[in-house]
């Protein structure tokens, strides 16, 4: 910003320290994934891609990646539809009660996921949803709703309510107004929410540990088991792939935001 105070040396140093603190644990994964050894360690004699090859040829790893992907897709659809409708409903009615509803919808990210997982376990046992694809989709979808509610509510806060009045005044039904006026205006917010809901499902572990065992074996679950059992460096390779995928999604989100904020 022109005319603003320039940061001092101490502030700059501190900022870099924090950045380093955030990046370092991720940074260590990259050399480990390229190790030439057969256990989790830094490269000794040279770099090797063998662990990437292991991951990309192993039916177990590929199966988990596919499973995680489809669970993330399913739960994202669930979270986006439910979250968007809820956010629009709260926005339209806009009373004190709707503030309560909105706060209630944020519960999944407020209460510890282990507590949530125990509750889910009890209900899913009764419903026969344990260790089922659908069960994990529902669990991830519900816990992904808060992200969609937050981003869509933010987009709606910037929506001019007179546009809705104008549409209705010209004879548009609620559905036509939603489809032609409201949704196109808040689409970037919905996309942001979808990306976050996807990432949430993609790297969720705690709930999966409780409600899945053998048939549903997501990627984070396989990494977790791998660490507990055999310290295979393939996990580091998977982790790098995960990070790359997530960063790509975040870049997509940034690009969408930039497009929305353009005049």
């Amino acid at each position: 910003m022109e005319g603003a105070h320039r940061p001092g040396g101490a502030a700059k140093g501190l900022a870099w320290l924090v950045a380093l603190y955030l990046v370092l644990p991720i940074g260590i994964i990259l050399p480990v994934s390229l190790t030439d050894q057969r256990f989790l360690s830094l490269p000794q004699e040279g770099l090797s891609l063998r662990h990437y090859a292991t991951v990309l040829t192993s039916t177990e790893w590929l199966g988990s990646i596919a499973q995680s992907f489809w669970i993330a897709v399913g739960s994202t659809i669930l979270a986006v539809v439910a979250g968007t409708l809820c956010a629009i409903g709260c926005w339209r009615i806009s009373r004190r009660a709707t503030d309560l509803v909105r706060a209630l919808m944020l519960l999944p990210i407020i209460i510890p996921s282990i507590v949530y997982a125990i509750g889910l376990y009890r209900y899913f046992a009764g419903l026969g949803l344990l260790d089922r694809f659908l069960g994990v989709v529902i669990a991830h979808g519900v816990t992904g709703i808060p992200y969609v509610i937050i981003t869509v509510s933010t987009a709606l806060a910037a929506f001019d309510p007179r546009l809705e009045q104008a549409a209705r005044g010209m004879g548009a039904s609620l559905w036509q107004t939603l489809r032609w006026v409201i949704l196109p205006r808040i689409a970037p917010g919905i996309a942001s929410g979808a990306i976050f809901a996807f990432i949430h499902s993609w790297d969720e572990l705690v709930i999966v540990l409780f409600i899945a065992s053998r048939d549903v074996f997501t990627l984070p679950r396989r990494i977790w088991d791998g660490i507990n059992e055999n310290l295979d460096p393939a996990m580091a390779a998977v982790a790098v792939l995960l990070i790359v995928f997530t960063v790509l999604l975040l870049l997509l989100d940034m690009a969408l935001r930039r497009r929305r904020d353009a005049p």
Binding site: A166, M170, P184
Partner: peptide, 30 residues
């Protein structure tokens, strides 16, 4: 939406994501 009245709002309330022609066509599309 059932009254069939035209209205010009304060600040116009044009749909920012539609062109001029699409804005004018909106009541007909509805």
């Amino acid at each position: 939406e059932k009254r069939d009245f035209g209205m010009v709002f304060q600040g116009y309330a044009l749909f920012p994501h539609m062109t001029v022609a699409e804005n004018v066509a909106f009541p007909l599309r509805v």
